[in-house]
């Protein structure tokens, strides 16, 4: 824990996530207008009333940007949590229980690893009649859970044969008690690293799908902002802030998750630890 907080990269990542968290929570206070209000003059430039101008459809860009933090943060954290939970279960069943369960789960994991994730996502999204944030989280988890699952399996397998687990078994502790009391706590570091890795993937993939028009284009998110920026030809008409800023926010939030993933990995992974 101390090593984690001493890490400047981790602190930077944490600060960025906290910043966007605050913006998302206080969005109604920060944003001067409703993000879906289209009663403004379209294509206004930067002014005191419209800090970043207005869109070709007549939305206030600053308000949209503020509200957009909600979707990205929600999808990132929720997908990260779902994926981490699935990976934990897979890791325990595959690595600790072993046997034919492990054989089957390993093959399934490997198939999902080789399958190009985003293409699979696009194909699934194409069949969906309605797309909201919840379906988005579900399909992101379906296409992205395998990444990192193998590390947890390896960890669970190596824990199974450690002396302290052996000792617990000898002293007659029940199987699931051992799993909860000894295995899970020792997988925690890798699990947290995987959580942030999955959050990074989710933020980028969600924005990507929405940019392609495969989300709900009426939601206000950074991805749909870029969708409208491209399809409304906002950029060619000179409204380039509309293009620059949502992407920059996605980049910053994704980078924060990436930094946290990297920093936790450096602490939790014994092979990368500095001696």
């Amino acid at each position: 824990m101390k090593a984690f907080f001493a890490n400047r990269l981790a602190l930077a990542g944490l600060a960025i996530v906290a910043f966007f968290g605050l913006v998302a929570l206080l969005a109604p206070v920060i944003a001067p207008y409703s993000p879906t209000d289209i009663n403004f003059k379209p294509m206004l430039g930067v002014s005191a009333e419209h800090l970043l101008g207005t869109t070709p459809q007549g939305n206030d860009i600053f308000s949209q940007l503020v509200y957009g933090a909600r979707a990205s943060l929600l999808v990132g954290l929720a997908t990260g949590a779902v994926i981490a939970a699935v990976q934990l279960l897979m890791g325990i069943f595959s690595g600790y229980v072993g046997g034919w369960v492990d054989a089957v789960l390993s093959v399934v994991t490997n198939v999902f690893l080789v399958m190009p994730g985003l293409v699979l996502l696009i194909v699934i999204a194409a069949y969906l009649p309605q797309r909201g944030l919840v379906t988005m989280i579900v399909i992101l988890a379906v296409a992205g859970w395998a990444w990192g699952a193998r590390v947890l399996r390896a960890q669970a397998m190596s824990l199974r044969d450690r002396p302290f687990v052996e000792a617990a078994r000898m002293s007659g502790e029940g199987r699931w008690w051992i799993v909860l009391g000894h295995i899970v706590p020792n997988m925690f570091g890798i699990l947290v690293a995987n959580f942030f890795g999955a959050a990074l993937y989710a933020v980028l993939a969600e924005a990507g799908l929405e940019f392609l028009g495969l989300g709900n284009i009426n939601n206000v998110t950074w991805g749909t902002m870029l969708y409208w920026a491209e399809n409304g030809d906002a950029v060619l008409l000179g409204q380039w802030l509309y293009l620059l800023l949502p992407g920059l926010c996605i980049l910053l939030l994704g980078m924060a998750f990436g930094l946290l993933n990297f920093a936790v990995d450096q602490v939790a992974n014994p092979r990368l630890r500095r001696n």
Binding site: L251, G254, M255
Partner: peptide, 17 residues
């Protein structure tokens, strides 16, 4: 880390513009 967090479509749009 920054490069791996880059939204490809955004970089492409910026480059195109």
């Amino acid at each position: 880390v920054m490069l791996s967090a880059m939204p490809v479509f955004w970089v492409s749009l910026l480059a195109l513009y």
